[in-house]
């Protein structure tokens, strides 16, 4: 019943706006119609799952409908373009993650630079990766791993070209000064499968994709790539502790909108995001998924993205990855 009323309400408001020559949206009555949350990946991926869980709770925080719309394609650049082109009225938002936001500008000649055409609203979550080895490389510690790497080029699997697991392993090779060879897979699943089967040496992968096998002893976790140890893997050191200087890598997700978003709406969205992330249920769901909820918002989030962009730019340049 309430559903009907809100819809009729939305209809009346939009008709009114139409009659008065489409007034700019004001923060007080925002949101007065459904918000479209664009996800740059097909339904069913990791980013999509986080977006849907997040969107469901954000509806309550904002008091309006939030519709998740998948706009996959062109290495997630389509989603960026769609939102960059949208009206900055707060009704079209994007779940941005490190691939399209900070890595792709180094790989592609993008028509819309995310740093210039998108406005940071809030970081949602930051998920560290884990360095794991399988039966093909029976080492127990990072030191043994680095020793083995000196004896011969190690082969690692990734979830795909330019994915977090690809760049994470590249950076590990660069920071530790070892030669590594890349085998791209389509998604983390098949790559972990070949790691367990002993066909490849190691992976730097997301925690959910490997944690069960690590706890069981099938795979050995050498290090986590975040600044701190991970709560469900307390015995696994961070990479820095394990002797790889200055090595961190993570997969993160944030909320961004088109450039020129009214500051009040942006602030309202950041507050709603903070409220959503403070919900213990959402908190535990994110943690179950290996992610740590974040409190960065607005300009701080923008600065974080700029730093990430500079950092991964160097990795991409040093590894000489380019896409023609």
């Amino acid at each position: 019943m309430t559903f009907k009323i809100t819809r009729r309400g939305a209809l009346l408001t939009s008709l009114a706006a139409f009659a008065m020559g489409s007034l700019p949206a004001t923060a007080q009555d925002y949101p007065s119609k459904p918000i479209t949350l664009v996800v740059s990946y097909a339904a069913g991926g990791g980013t999509d799952a986080i977006a849907r869980v997040f969107a469901a709770r954000l509806e309550t925080a904002l008091g309006g409908r939030v519709i998740v719309e998948n706009r996959p394609g062109a290495a997630a650049n389509i989603g960026t373009e769609v939102v960059a082109d949208a009206d900055p009225d707060g009704y079209t938002l994007l779940i941005g993650n490190q691939g399209p936001m900070v890595v792709n500008p180094h790989l592609f000649d993008l028509p819309k630079d995310p740093a210039e055409t998108l406005e940071p609203i809030a970081l949602i979550a930051d998920a560290a990766l884990v360095v794991v080895v399988g039966p093909k490389l029976p080492v127990k510690t990072m030191a043994e791993f680095l020793e083995a790497a000196k004896a011969g080029e190690l082969v690692y699997g990734s979830a795909g070209n330019a994915s977090a697991s690809h760049l994470g392993a590249l950076l590990l090779g660069q920071k530790a000064g070892i030669a590594v060879k890349h085998v791209p897979y389509k998604g983390a699943g098949p790559a972990v499968n070949d790691l367990v089967g002993g066909h490849i040496d190691f992976m730097v992968t997301t925690i959910p994709s490997a944690i069960g096998l690590v706890q069981d002893g099938t795979l050995t976790a050498l290090a986590v790539t975040g600044p701190e140890r991970f709560s469900t893997l307390p015995d696994v050191p961070t990479a820095i502790e394990a002797g790889v200087p200055d090595y961190t890598a993570s997969a993160w997700y944030g909320l961004v909108g088109p450039k020129g978003l009214p500051p009040e709406i942006s602030a309202k969205l950041a507050a709603a995001t903070a409220e959503t992330l403070a919900d213990p249920e959402i908190l535990s769901k994110l943690q179950n998924d290996g992610a740590i909820p974040s409190t960065l918002a607005g300009a701080d989030f923008g600065a974080f993205m700029a730093a990430e962009r500079a950092r991964w730019g160097e990795v991409v340049k040093a590894a000489d990855i380019k896409i023609e």
């Binding site: 069913g44 990791g46 799952a49 869980v53 998604g187 699943g189 959910p208 994709s209 944690i211 069960g212 096998l213 706890q215 069981d216 099938t218 469900t232 535990s284 769901k285 179950n288 998924d289 290996g290």
Partner: peptide, 21 residues
């Protein structure tokens, strides 16, 4: 792909997919 989604569903529910399940 469907099974990958099931992994996601299990993780979100707090069940670690793996040999221990």
């Amino acid at each position: 792909a469907v099974m990958a989604l099931m992994v996601g569903a299990m993780m979100i529910q707090g069940i670690v997919p793996g040999p221990q399940v």
